[in-house]
C-alpha cells in the first residue's frame, strides 16, 4: 500500500536555543495537505504552547526540531502507524509517540477542520510536555487534562481564547450527580486505568482531567502553573495539592465540585 502520509518537520530559525516569545515558527508543507488557515492556526498554536510550557519550565532549554509531525490521510494508514508505534486504538484520531517524538494526526474526508486542528493542539501538548520532562513521571490525569485544555484554544481570530468544552463540563456534572466521581482515586490512576476507564465510560478521564485543569486555570492561573510544574516527577498528586493548594486536596475537592455544580 502506498504511504501517502508525509512528515512536516518543525523548522526553527535558531536551533537548540530557548525560544523567545517573539520568534516565529514556520511549517514546511510540501504536499499541501493543510489549508492556509490550518497552517496559520498551527503556527500560532505552536508559539502559544511553546510560551506556555516555558512558563512551567523556566530554566529549560528545548530543541523543537526534535518533534516530527505526521498527517495520515487514510484511516488504515493511521491504524498502521499507530500499530507500529505500539499505540493501537481504533477510536483515537491522533497520538504522540514518545519513543521517537512523533505526533500523528488523522486527516481524511470525514475530519472536520476544527476537529483536526483540535487534535493537533492536543498532541502538541503531549509533545511539548515530553520534550520538557523527558522520562519523568507525569500523572495521567494531568497529561491528558492539560492536552484537552490546550486543544480548546482558538487561534483563528485576533485574540487567543480558550473555548470552554461544555460537553466535558456537563459530563463531569452528571458524574457528580451520579455520585460516580471519586477524585482521590481518579488522580492516582495510571495510564492503563485511565485509558480503559475513559474508553468504556464516555471519556470519563478526559472530561474529569480537563475540568480540573480548567478550574485551576480559571481560579488562579499563576497558582495553577505552580501546581502543574510541581506535578512533574511527583508520584502523589494529593501531596502536591496539600502543599500548594490552600486547604489541601480535600479543600480542592470541595471547591471543584462546587464550581462544576454551579455550571
Amino acid at each position: 500500500m502506498k504511504n501517502s502520509s508525509f512528515y512536516i518537520v518543525l523548522f526553527c530559525l535558531l536551533l537548540s536555543v530557548k525560544l523567545a516569545a517573539q520568534e516565529n515558527l514556520k511549517f514546511i508543507d510540501n504536499e499541501n495537505l493543510l489549508t492556509k488557515k490550518e497552517t496559520a492556526c498551527l503556527e500560532k498554536a505552536i508559539q502559544y504552547e511553546a510560551d506556555f510550557f516555558n512558563r512551567l519550565f523556566l530554566d529549560k532549554t528545548v530543541d523543537l526540531s526534535a518533534i516530527k509531525f505526521t498527517v495520515a490521510t487514510g484511516f488504515m494508514e493511521f491504524i498502521n502507524v499507530q500499530a507500529q508505534a505500539g499505540a493501537l486504538h481504533a477510536n483515537a484520531s491522533g497520538f504522540f509517540s514518545s519513543r521517537d517524538s512523533t505526533l500523528v494526526v488523522l486527516k481524511n474526508k470525514k475530519s472536520k477542520s476544527n476537529g483536526f486542528l483540535s487534535t493537533c493542539y492536543h498532541e502538541l501538548s503531549h509533545a511539548f510536555l515530553h520534550l520538557h520532562v523527558g522520562d519523568k513521571y507525569i500523572p495521567a490525569w494531568f497529561n491528558e487534562g492539560l492536552a484537552e485544555y490546550l486543544d480548546q484554544m482558538t487561534f483563528d481570530k485576533k485574540k487567543i481564547v480558550h473555548r470552554v468544552n461544555n460537553y466535558g463540563v456537563m459530563r463531569v456534572k452528571t458524574l457528580i450527580e451520579l455520585k460516580d466521581l471519586n477524585l482521590s482515586e481518579f488522580v492516582e490512576w495510571n495510564y492503563q486505568t485511565f485509558s480503559q476507564k475513559s474508553f468504556t465510560q464516555e471519556g470519563y478521564g478526559y472530561a474529569a482531567g480537563y475540568c480540573m485543569v480548567l478550574f485551576l486555570m480559571q481560579q488562579n492561573e499563576e497558582r495553577a502553573i505552580t501546581i502543574f510544574s510541581n506535578l512533574i516527577g511527583a508520584r502523589s498528586t494529593k501531596e502536591v495539592f496539600d502543599r500548594r493548594y490552600a486547604g489541601g486536596f480535600a479543600q480542592f475537592e470541595k471547591d471543584f465540585i462546587a464550581y462544576i455544580e454551579s455550571k
Partner: peptide, 18 residues
C-alpha cells in the same frame, strides 16, 4: 441526561451509568 438536553450542540442526549 438533562445536562445534555440543554446543549444543542450535543447529539447524544443519553448518558450511560454504572
Amino acid at each position: 441526561d438533562k445536562n445534555k438536553v440543554k446543549d444543542q450542540n450535543v447529539g447524544n442526549k443519553h448518558t450511560h451509568f454504572r
